[in-house]
Amino acid sequence: MVVDFLHSHKAQLKVNRELYGEKVIHKCLYWWAARLSVDFDKDDTSFVITLSDPTESLNLKDVIASMKRDLIDFRTREIITDETKHIRAMLIAKAFANDDAFDENPPGGISDPTGFDPVKP
C-alpha cells in the first residue's frame, strides 16, 4: 500500500491490484466506513482509496497502519476461504445428509485385544 498524500483529516492510498483483490479491499473498507468517509476507485495498476475523517477526531496515520494490517488479514482470510471452499461444502453436505450416502469408512481396521469383536453387529 502506497500513501499518495496524508493531510490531517484526508488521505489517499494506492493498493497494488496484483497483490489484493477487489473483494479484499471491500471487506476491509466495510469495517472502516462507519468512522470514515471512504471513496474507492481504480486505475490500471492500483485501487485508489480516499479517506476523509468528517469528525476530525481520528489520527489518519494510525488508521492507515491499522488498515495495512487489516488488508493482510483479509487477504489471508480470502486464501483460506478459497482453498477450503470445497472441503467446507463437503463437510456441511455430509453433516446434513439425511442418510449415509456421503459416509465413508475411516482407513485402517479396529480390533480388541480381549477377543471381543467390535465390528460384529
Partner: peptide, 18 residues
C-alpha cells in the same frame, strides 16, 4: 490429505453443533 481421513468425524461434530 486434500480430504482428511476424519472428515466424517468432523461432519458429525458439525451436525452436533447445529
Amino acid at each position: 490429505k486434500p480430504i482428511p481421513d476424519l472428515i466424517d468425524v468432523l461432519a458429525t461434530r458439525y451436525r452436533t453443533k447445529k
